[in-house]
Design a protein around this nucleic acid. Sequence first.
DNA 1: CAGAATCCCTGGGGATACTG
DNA 2: CAGTATCCCCAGGGATTCTG
Lengths: 117, 117
Amino acid sequence: MKKKASLSEDCLRNIRAMKDAQDLLSGKWKIAIIGSLHYNERLRFTDLGRHLEGIAPKVLSKELKDLEMNHLLKRTVKNTTPITVEYELTQQGKSLKKVVEAMSNWGVQYRKSIASK
Amino acid sequence: MKKKASLSEDCLRNIRAMKDAQDLLSGKWKIAIIGSLHYNERLRFTDLGRHLEGIAPKVLSKELKDLEMNHLLKRTVKNTTPITVEYELTQQGKSLKKVVEAMSNWGVQYRKSIASK
DNA sequence: CAGAATCCCTGGGGATACTG
DNA sequence: CAGTATCCCCAGGGATTCTG
């Protein structure tokens, strides 16, 4: 016999899922990084920096490592002189498309609604 | 005459929008809070806490204030004894639906893909 | 170019106890 | 019930300089 649980297990599961997502995307830059790669397919370290406006190389480096560890993006060293490195989303990373787009759209919307006040 | 800019203004705009969103939703709990209210319509302080599993009241209180300041949720004091307070999403807050759902779905997906490894 | 090394510092976040 | 009040701590993040 089913009763409505006061705290649906379903609901808790979803909330945990959201927390998971936010944890992996924690920090001030990760979403933006994923977003950049979402719009640009593949980027090099410095180019990525240019997209992010104001991020320090150390921080960028660390964020990239985090994302790589979670298999959201892939790092490729090109054998050129000088050496270049390319970053691109993995399949996992690409699966964030919906999230990235939702946030982007919402952000644009939000700016408008603030501006019109 | 249109030329492809090396750093599309469009792209930067989107990235900024994402940063905006992430800033408003910064911290470990905001998304989860929005999510809870997305699934439950309206909740009281303590109930909200129950959904979030492990959050300290001080922290919850602060997160709620932040969200309220950004007009993402509304606080209502009920004239009961003892006093009760209800939180619910504003229209602004509800507009985050897409974001919340995207993150939730992705989180569930991600858990599976990790578990199956 | 792609980072690593250093130094620094605030504030986000937690634990616990208390109150109207 | 719905929060405050305190105390505390570390890591996220920044600025700058250096290197293979």
